[in-house]
Write a protein that binds this DNA or RNA. Structure first.
Lengths: 249, 249
DNA sequence: TATTGTCTGTTTGTCGGACACTAAGTCGAT
DNA sequence: ATCGACTTAGTGTCCGACAAACAGACAATA
């Protein structure tokens, strides 16, 4: 008979502790907002040393399942979008994902984002978009970098659509893809203006609650981005991180 | 003047350590595969206690930046897709994301996945798809649950497209969405057969390197899924996790 | 009375040291 | 050279300790 190699991991105490706590959070025994006992109490009730508890807490903390609002309080919490997406972004960068890979996904997802925004955006979301747009135009006039504001615009559009699955999925892709503006803008003078026109049209369509127009403009906007990259002679297949010389905050 | 509230976090030693190591990994000073010194050496070279180093290692480990291939070795590594997506999945579930939210994203992304598969799939990917399909049909005949295999099929299609950004973005959505089959199948007897037909057509289009057909079939397949949900009288707006009564492995 | 300063017990972050267990390398025997 | 027992080193866990910071109570001041 063939013996299938089963890699068995020894369960360490700190992993058991964090797994147990995670299970209790997932099945609802512990709810977001609940406060956990102090480390000494935890150590006692789980029958392990405080150091062990601490290592377990580090895991849960890193997964966003618990958080310290103040140094003395340890509460159960929902993972924050930013924690998830920043990890995701880092992974994509480390994997040397290419412009084209990101662009393909963006072309599929950003038009949906605009469409949903046109269907579901409330007044606050619209105001946020206006604000972003105004800052984008001012920054462009002043010759400042638009990358951060551009990224923010697309994030805000996604937020306006009220679809959290979409927001989580697109954030890292948008962040990395639009960071390509950093290298594109100096090489293609017209790009910034085209960007402003597109954003204006998208906001107008969202305000008019016109999903089709919003979707179409967003699609063109994304297609245009690739065209700009090609015109500027930038490589579509190269890792996106290779295009960037400056780090972000 | 208004005083903008700036929340200042005290930097803890274990965070500083993990941040420092992370920075060295990101800027290439440490490369995936590199082996790190032992905890005692690390503690010495960073001028902190071993316990502090351990807590920092827990963070990095949890983020997938370092790994222990054997209990004695600590190596720098690329974050694994599974770590990222499982977190993502858990977050979506905890957020009580609705069927409709997931479905919207799937409708945008799965056709792209099929299209890319038709353009870039190699022979191994096709073989993997065939294998999955065979197991799906056998499981259906035997009356077993198709959920896991259905999810696997869509994953394999995405894998075949060779786009890692796409794979990372869609995995959690697919996992949660297709888990809806669990409740759908018993209520809609024809669903399983329609699924098999669609999967067959998608595989055929991928094999024929016909992106348009692949995309169209996938689109229909996803649209069909929602129709099934409606026919079965299942709520589209309810949290997806509420539909599931059984836990998965 | 409301604000500010002081005090006190508690908890975290960090430290140093300790030990069992085991993976890895060393060395000798066949 | 291959196999085995032996030695070594490193992780996982525990213990005990302490400074710093916090939360809350309390007193002082306007």
């Amino acid at each position: 008979m063939t013996l299938k190699p089963k890699k068995l991991r020894v369960a360490h105490a700190y992993e058991l502790f964090s797994a147990e706590l995670e299970a209790q959070i997932l099945d609802g025994t512990l709810r977001p907002g609940d406060q956990l006992p102090g480390e000494i109490d935890l150590a006692e009730s789980f029958g392990v040393n405080r150091s062990t508890i601490r290592e377990g807490i580090r895991l849960l903390e890193s997964e966003g399942l618990v958080r310290r609002p103040s140094p003395r309080k340890l509460v159960v919490s929902l993972p924050r979008a930013k924690d998830l997406t920043s990890r995701h972004t880092r992974a994509l960068r480390m994997l040397d994902v290419s412009f084209l890979e990101l662009w393909h996904v963006a072309l599929a997802i950003e038009p949906l984002s605009a469409e949903l925004a046109a269907r579901f955006a409330g007044p606050e979301a619209l105001a946020a978009l206006d604000d972003t747009q105004e800052r984008l135009e001012r920054a462009t006039e002043a010759g400042q970098s638009q990358v951060a504001i551009d990224t923010e615009f697309h994030d805000k559009v996604a937020t306006a659509g009220n679809n959290r699955a979409l927001q989580l999925a697109r954030e890292p892709i948008g962040f990395l893809l639009y960071s390509g503006m950093e290298v594109l803008a100096p090489r293609l003078p017209g790009a910034a203006d085209r960007q402003i026109v597109a954003h204006r049209a998208i906001i107008a369509a969202i305000r008019a609650q016109d999903p089709d127009t919003a979707r179409t403009w967003m699609r063109r906007h994304i297609e245009d981005f690739k065209r700009g990259f090609e015109l500027a002679g930038l490589p579509l297949d190269a890792p996106i991180s290779a295009c960037r010389t400056t780090g972000e905050a």
